[in-house]
C-alpha cells in the first residue's frame, strides 16, 4: 500500500525534513507516527499525499509514484485517500452535510446518492443529527468529525490523519482517535500522526513509528 525507499525530503530553502526514510505499510494496518514537533511527521504525510515530492529515493502510494511529473495522477490518487487535518479544513458558511458532500462532488455521484452517502458518513461519526448545522456553529470536536466523515465517504484505501487531535480537549481527542482507529479494516489502512503518545499507549494491534530529526528512530508492533 505504501512503500518508501531511501526517501529524503529537502525543502526549497534547504531545510531537510526527512532523511533516508524506508517504510512499508500494507493493507488494513493501523499506524501511529509519533515524534516531537518539527520531527518530520507532517512532512512524511505531505509526501504520502503528493503535496511534496521526494528529493531523493522513491515513494509509492497505492501503486502511484510520487514525483513532480506525476501531478495529474497524484490528483487522482488523492481520491483514494481520506485526509484528516489538524485544522479540520472544513469550509465555513456551509453545513456539515455540504462539507461532507464536498469529498465526493467531483466523483460523479448523483445528487441523491451524494446526499444519502453523506448522511451515512455523518451517522458513522455520530453527527447525523447536526447535518444541517453550519460548521461555524459546531464545536472543534464536531468539526473534526465532519472532516472524518468527509474522508470516509469516499471509502478510501488509505486514511491519512495529521495530528487530528492537536486542537481538541482530552475527551474529544480520545474519542476521535477511537473513531479513526475503528475505520481500519481489511481494505483500509489508517495512518495517524500525533505527538500525544499518552493517548495511544493502550492501542493494541497497531504499528508505532517514531520519527525524530527527520529519521525513523523506532518501529514497533509491525514489521521491523
Amino acid at each position: 500500500m505504501i512503500r518508501i525507499k531511501g526517501a529524503t525530503l529537502t525543502y526549497k530553502d534547504g531545510t531537510t525534513a526527512l532523511k533516508d526514510i524506508n517504510l512499508n505499510i500494507g493493507a488494513g494496518e493501523l499506524v501511529y507516527i509519533t515524534g516531537p514537533s518539527g520531527s518530520g511527521k507532517t512532512s512524511l504525510l505531505k509526501l504520502l499525499m503528493g503535496v511534496e515530492y521526494p528529493s531523493e529515493g522513491e515513494v509509492l502510494v497505492l501503486g502511484q509514484k510520487i514525483a513532480k511529473e506525476e501531478k495529474r495522477r497524484i490528483r487522482r490518487l488523492r481520491r483514494n485517500i481520506g485526509p484528516v487535518f489538524q485544522d479540520f479544513r472544513v469550509i465555513k458558511g456551509r453545513t456539515a452535510l455540504e462539507n461532507v458532500m464536498m469529498g465526493v462532488r467531483f466523483l460523479g455521484f448523483s445528487p441523491k446518492k451524494m446526499k444519502s452517502e453523506s448522511l451515512n458518513a455523518l451517522e458513522k461519526v455520530g453527527l447525523k443529527h447536526k447535518y444541517s448545522s453550519l460548521v461555524e456553529n459546531l464545536s472543534w470536536g464536531e468539526c473534526q468529525r465532519v472532516a472524518i466523515a468527509r474522508a470516509i465517504i469516499r471509502k478510501p484505501a488509505l486514511i491519512l490523519a495529521d495530528e487530528p487531535t492537536g486542537n481538541l480537549d482530552l475527551d474529544n481527542a480520545v474519542s476521535i482517535l477511537e473513531l479513526l482507529s475503528s475505520l481500519r479494516d481489511d481494505k483500509t489502512s489508517v495512518l495517524i500522526t500525533t505527538h500525544a503518545t499518552h493517548l495511544i499507549d493502550n492501542q493494541k494491534d497497531a504499528v508505532f513509528i517514531r520519527i525524530n530529526g527527520g529519521r525513523i528512530t523506532m518501529e514497533q508492533g509491525g514489521r521491523a
Binding site: L77, R78, R79, R89, I91, M102, R150
Partner: peptide, 16 residues
C-alpha cells in the same frame, strides 16, 4: 483559496 486548496487535497481537478 482555502476552499480551493482543500478541494485540491481531496483530489478535485482544477477544471472542477
Amino acid at each position: 483559496r482555502f476552499q480551493i486548496n482543500t478541494l485540491q487535497l481531496l483530489g478535485a481537478s482544477n477544471s472542477f
